[in-house]
Amino acid sequence: MADVELITDAAQQGVSRRSFIKGVIAAGATASTASYLFRNSSPLAALPTAQGSVERLITLTVNGQQRRVDVLAQETLAMTLRYKLGLTGPKLGCDRAECGACTVLIDGVNRYSCSILTHTVRGQEITTIEGLESANGRLHPVQQAVVDEGGFQCAFCAPGFIMSMVATVEANPNPTREEMAHALSGNLCRCGDYNKILDSAMRAAEYARRRA
């Protein structure tokens, strides 16, 4: 198998490019060094906030780490994760809670991060696809199941589907194929790869049972 990182990581393109593209902020790095949602030069920074409304600087628990981050009142979690915390795993397919590509776990429950106000999940455990792998680089059983089934085509939907699979196998380690389909019905795949996705999900449940 090819070394994926070698090929995909923009940071390895060469010295000049490395100096230019910072690429994604590595997980765990201090947040907001590259805050693309709002900057001090933005008119948003100067907006006064009403007394009693939320403080912008908050701490989020993401993939087991405490992250300090400056969050606008109207900011969605998907935007915070993608543009402030460098976690581009959750994808914006519709930004309207319809496609599921942005699915993350909030306290273990799968939800659409495009349709969560970041401020409403303070103090809750946020898990993105980046947080599934163990520290030693071992894939989560669900990820492994997908790899073993050769799951997904374009895979833009994959992070969302995988997060829903994780939530499902945690809640119901012994689902029928039909139950699994219902559990994944909040995620859309336009490649139409549902058959293989269900195969992967059923294998994921099997792996999860085996691990338990």
Binding site: S53, V54, A73, Q74, H119
Partner: peptide, 11 residues
């Protein structure tokens, strides 16, 4: 039809 305009959030 994109990006939520600013508001104050109360909890």
């Amino acid at each position: 039809r994109d990006m939520i305009p600013a508001f104050d959030l109360f909890q």
